[in-house]
Amino acid sequence: MAELAAQGKSPEILFWVGCAGSYDARAIKVTKAFAKILNAANIDFAILGQEERCTGDPARRAGNEFLFQMSAMMNIETINQYKFKRIVTTCPHCYNTFKNEYPALGGDFKVIHHSEYLQELIADGKIRITDEGEIKGKKLTYHDSCYIGRGNDIYEAPREVLNALNNDIIEMKRCKSDGLCCGAGGAQMFKEDEPGNKRINTERAEEAIHTGAEVIAANCPFCITMLEDGIKEKDAQEKVTVLDLAEIIADRI
């Protein structure tokens, strides 16, 4: 972003990669898949690179409001230096903080989650779904992340993205506004569980496996980690793969 700004250019899209997308080996695959799609669709985009910081989501949810606001204000200062049309992010948590929480701190940005953005690209004909790819013909199920689903009431856009593939889609019993959390939100990703009789991701993985789907489509890096762990625990990794919407689409263009 800084390089473009130095040349006096302003891209259309600021791709907000997020911590997971930048550092987590599994989520990096999603980042790359999404970058591949953006390139294929000829989208003029940039990233903040070293200037990007954690949005502060887990800090706020853990109760550490100071750290959240510090991180948020630093991000807002950085982003305010640049011109672009919209922020696109592959992380529901980053999306939610930008959309709902930064405005109170003076950060008014247009932000869109990649599940909605992919739907837009498909609807506008900017990307073409081909009939080839590894996912062709596989049964899919879709896992609603809490912060895209209940948190922001986005249930249809990601499903429309999947519908564009012409694969069989089976819903889990708990879906849409009744979707079951993967167990990572509220900063649970970064701590051990309280005592109980099961892990939340195991519960969700079982439900997903039960549908008989071969691919679980997700839209959140933390859900992916959680679901994959749950599937490994159930020894079902031969039967089911967890993929982000971006990876699924990248496979078919």
């Binding site: 800090a59 853990a62 900063a187």
Partner: peptide, 15 residues
Amino acid sequence: DWLPMFNAIENSGAV
């Protein structure tokens, strides 16, 4: 468990 995450956000801007 949350302390390393807090420290990381504060010091290196990532979780």
